[in-house]
Design a protein around this nucleic acid. Structure first.
Lengths: 106, 106
DNA sequence: CGGGTATATATCCTACTTGACATATGTCAA
DNA sequence: TTGACATATGTCAAGTAGGATATATACCCG
């Protein structure tokens, strides 16, 4: 039941700044947030590099433009699952995803 | 709406053998399955190495023993999200997760 | 044999994620 | 300005992953 609290915290307002210290996040919560952020950024970069619009990516992913915007915007309502699927959709390999995941973000 | 089909396929029976060729999976679908598998294995290893029972891990994760069993068993109903949270719960760092994610599995 | 512990599997109900849609903002060009 | 295109944001119904719980199987030891 601690995941609930986490969701709550995240929902509040993380998009800004250095996530860890600002809110009182456990290292694990922080890691999760950082991963999301790192994947979001990689997604946007890869999409742009591929010359795709959000709409085009959405279609390839079987999703909608609005959700792609949320993916890239780091919206708390998106899961790592979808983020990763999106990366695969823009041509990332498993290794690429792993690399993106570990990427420095702060 | 292609994700649906994927779910369907996965639900059928992948746990066995070399995933990719057996069912007709797209490279992306295969990558996803491999990632899940790789993370599952790392999770089990780390848990055992830490001398934890599924129940203990479940408590630390804020989940239940049954779900941990599914996480480790590669049940199609578990998300990468939870898998990653579980890894963090057994002390994995972001880098560790990335490494586990890319890990060879076949 | 019986009890204890660890894990696997099944079912239920809730809460979350998701796709779809509507709309807002912004940019560029005719 | 107007229209076309790209992206951001909000809402919501529907499907699904999640936690809880119960039960099954397996192992070990007394």
């Amino acid at each position: 039941m601690d995941a609930k609290k986490r969701k709550r915290l995240e929902a509040a307002g993380w998009a800004v700044g250095d996530t860890a210290a600002f809110l009182k996040l456990t290292p694990q919560e922080a890691a999760l947030v950082e991963m999301r952020l790192a994947l979001s950024r990689s997604l946007r970069e890869r999409r742009l590099a591929a010359g795709l619009t959000q709409t085009a990516l959405a279609k390839a992913l079987g999703s909608s433009q609005s959700r792609v915007a949320k993916l890239e915007g780091g919206d708390p309502s998106v899961s790592l699952e979808l983020l990763i699927r999106a990366l695969l959709s823009v041509g990332a390999s498993r290794k690429d995803v792993a690399h993106a995941l570990a990427r420095r973000v702060a």
